[in-house]
Design a binder for these strands. Sequence first.
DNA 1: TTGATATTTAGAATGATTCCAATTCTTATG
DNA 2: CATAAGAATTGGAATCATTCTAAATATCAA
Lengths: 143, 143
Amino acid sequence: MRLNTTELDRLKTSLKQAGLKPTRQREHVLSVLLARRDHPTVEEVWQRSRTLSRGISLATVYNCLESFVDSGLVKQVNYEREPTRYCPNLRPHAHFKDQETGRVYDIDLPNEVLIQLNSILPEGFRPEAIEISFHGRTKTQNS
Amino acid sequence: MRLNTTELDRLKTSLKQAGLKPTRQREHVLSVLLARRDHPTVEEVWQRSRTLSRGISLATVYNCLESFVDSGLVKQVNYEREPTRYCPNLRPHAHFKDQETGRVYDIDLPNEVLIQLNSILPEGFRPEAIEISFHGRTKTQNS
DNA sequence: TTGATATTTAGAATGATTCCAATTCTTATG
DNA sequence: CATAAGAATTGGAATCATTCTAAATATCAA
């Protein structure tokens, strides 16, 4: 989780492009999020951010993640009323939650599926977002 | 919300078929839920159930709704971390939330859409349920 | 009718998230 | 570089949907 200057500059740039002041905490939380392609909760992001030299408060992790979502840098995933999870994958995708492991997988959404889904809406319905979540079991070998 | 004997018998029967003891409270909560095709929260179901002669506790409304969901009599709908809503429509359907009114609409899911959605899953993924939620705006005339 | 089991209940407890008000940063401008 | 205005961070308190608890009550098979 130690960043070299190039990576740091890249982070600063994407924060600025998103209209966010590049603070030490935001850079760190964003790098933590991008470092793994999974779907951590706020608490998990906080744990992973503990390495930050002078520490970081839970409230700040909440703040950072909220501003990232607002500015489109990450997405949120909710399963029932479980703690919200955060997802750095910006392509259109669905989620599949394995009930045995609790792990959430990204499922790419082909454009034709999105088109077909929009076509089932009655006239006058203007969707701004769509969320598709499966849950079930997987029989895969990759942990 | 007053029930005649025939309707009451019908409710008792569906509760029994679902493996639930037909109590006064369950009959009432279920009838409240079936009376309108909307998506009330627990609090709203409780308000609508207040007519019950000796009253009903919030805890019981939670209990009833949970047992209905467990036995397949109703479905749950969640938008982000807002209070859970309950839905008496058992056909496969998606939800569309109008951001202006907060109202949730049912959108029927044609079988071909379900088939196409299952086809995007990698091998070994066995879905047990799928949840599809739109949100956006509607330009309809019906309130 | 009665006993075994299930349900109801009020209120306390939980837990994710939001709010608050004080401190510390960032950055544009002189 | 210094500074001031606005932003971000912070620990702790507050919120609020939901779950838990344990005692009272209801259901139903025998």
